[in-house]
Design a protein around this nucleic acid. Structure first.
Lengths: 335, 335
DNA sequence: TTGTATGCGTTATCAT
DNA sequence: ATGATAACGCATACAA
């Protein structure tokens, strides 16, 4: 085993208390003592044991980040930003994947393996509102939501304005001359906030332009991967859309490939726009128009909120709207 | 605070020892006792405190996964597989990013914040061999390398055969009729195993085909992102290659975009092949030929090795070669 | 089969 | 400014 406080104390001929003071740079330590202790620490290669410290203080210095799938580009980018933002304030991050498994998601939050290992949880899930309330009841652990949900007032929460983001995307398609605008990503279950809000933005944009919403042009998709976008687009092309609004960039990447495979061109025959702004879209051919979500901002604010709550559980929950920005690129160029 | 063993013991009118036995399903507990204890546990909503347990047992149930950048698709996919493989044997995974910062990488492994928080470390870094040895000296923590290094014999290690993988890629380009084959990704520093091995495979393939290696066709690249592939390709096109072998799929994605921007076609004018098999390449246009690395296999074997070492630190290090497989797709089709 | 008591390494309280 | 010592919650050696 490695050296302990006691070992250092013996070696330096001081009390364990003094060593502890030095280690956690307590203010009132005489220079002579400090030097003696530091020498002993160096000699024994002493490292504080974070587990023991945690047992005593109740703080682990760790946060959990729960995402559906870490290898979805949006989430891996978010994770990167969260890990960086956390590191800046002295926290480390554990990542849990729910694998889009609803039960697993709930169990992760409510089950026993979650207990006390973390100082707080950052949740970026696809849960329903009802489930959120159940969680709130069941856990006293600091919990922040990041991503896209209805604001509730009971949680620290960083989200984008999904209705506006979707509307910006569709307005852009309209402005570039398209009118038969399809959508991929709606979900039958109204309880999921993100798709519902994006659908609302889509419909609002069409209605404002005096275009009737055609349910045939709206393809539901429970999962937001490339293959889902591909398959939905294959179906959709029979309806002869001149543009497709995808609820994620990954859906859009699949949609573009499906359009090419059908012998059509982007943007000449069908324009495509997504949401997320993953780097992949910038290098795609054509480059993918999208709505950029400020993940560093989201990460930073979420960390700020959760740390504030850890330090003082009684603070009022904050609800932050993260900025988004339309990024027109080649895939929606006017023809 | 939540309930402790002692609370449960009092409530059930038994000793703390008995409760502990029940919780960790010790064999010899009478049914009557167990029921009484279980009832008390349920009533108090008792959850074992993993921190206290850890202080006692020395096991945290956590592994650290160290990668350069979690949002690089190859690493996020690897992380996904590692998290899943770890979950299957009861471990959770913390992710640390070194951000390609060499100093940070070393500090993560050797610095004090690493201490005793994990039962083991999975390292997928771009470190040099000399640094690995230093690490070995400095840490007693179970450590497994995954990815691409020279086997050393001192470490548990799962790697692909990089020389063969690179050679398979270049052989494929040769077989499809290309002869001016460029390479992107070599690094000046010979200490880094992955680029060195891939360069060796590239050169071996050319030599076997009786083609002289032209240093002008080899573009070094320290970083393996899309933008790096793009920039390298812009330079490279002046040399009129008819194929480019990229040391990563991300480099290849950037290369393809640069070729299009130069008004050339893939694969007609320039064929492109990468290594990694990220999903992005399957949906790209043209789809990206690549060498697939079996990340689930890598993850599974790495977890197996590290768990074995945690359970018995004296076991001999295992060195596993993970399979790779050439995946010819559109970007290298014969013309 | 169950109870008692000790220690894991730290922080923090109470002295001095 | 520093020393002695009591927790933190659990697992386990030792007793019964």
């Amino acid at each position: 085993m490695s050296a302990t406080l006691r070992d250092v104390a013996e070696k330096a001929g001081v009390s364990i208390r003094t060593v502890s003071n030095v280690v956690s740079d307590y203010a009132h330590v005489s220079t002579r003592m400090r030097e003696r202790v530091l020498a002993a620490i160096a000699e024994l290669d002493y490292r504080p044991n974070p587990i023991a410290r945690t047992l005593r203080t109740g703080r682990t210095g760790m946060l959990a980040l729960v995402v559906p799938e870490i290898d979805v580009p949006y989430f891996s980018q978010l994770a990167r930003d969260v890990i960086d933002a956390a590191a800046e304030v002295g926290y480390r991050v554990m990542i849990d994947q729910t694998g889009n498994d609803h039960e697993r998601e709930k169990e992760l939050l409510l089950g026993e393996n979650r207990t006390m290992l973390f100082d707080g949880i950052l949740f970026s899930p696809l849960v329903t509102r009802a489930e959120l309330l159940e969680m709130k009841r069941a856990t006293t652990m600091p919990l922040a939501l990041l991503g896209e949900h209805d604001f509730d007032g009971r949680f620290d929460h960083v989200a984008i304005d999904n209705v506006a983001a979707a509307r910006d995307a569709v307005d852009h398609l309209l402005a570039s001359g398209r009118s038969r605008i399809a959508a991929i990503g709606a979900q039958p279950d109204e309880e999921f906030a993100t798709p519902r809000q994006r659908t609302a933005g889509y419909e609002a944009a069409l209605e404002a332009a005096g275009i009737e919403v055609d349910p045939e042009l709206m393809r539901p998709s429970a999962h937001y991967g490339r293959i889902d976008g591909y398959e939905a687009t294959v179906e959709l092309l029979r309806m002869r859309p001149d543009a497709i609004f995808c609820y994620s960039d990954l859906l859009a990447m699949g949609a573009m490939r499906a359009i090419f495979d059908a012998g059509l061109r982007v943007p000449e025959d069908v324009a495509v726009i997504g949401i997320d702004d993953i780097e992949e879209g910038r290098f795609a051919r054509p480059s993918l128009s999208t709505v950029s979500l400020d993940t560093p901002f989201i990460a930073r604010e979420a960390i700020r909120a959760i740390v504030a709550r850890i330090d003082d559980p009684s603070v009022a929950p904050t609800q932050i709207v993260a900025p988004h920005r339309l990024l027109p690129r080649e895939s929606t160029a006017a023809v």
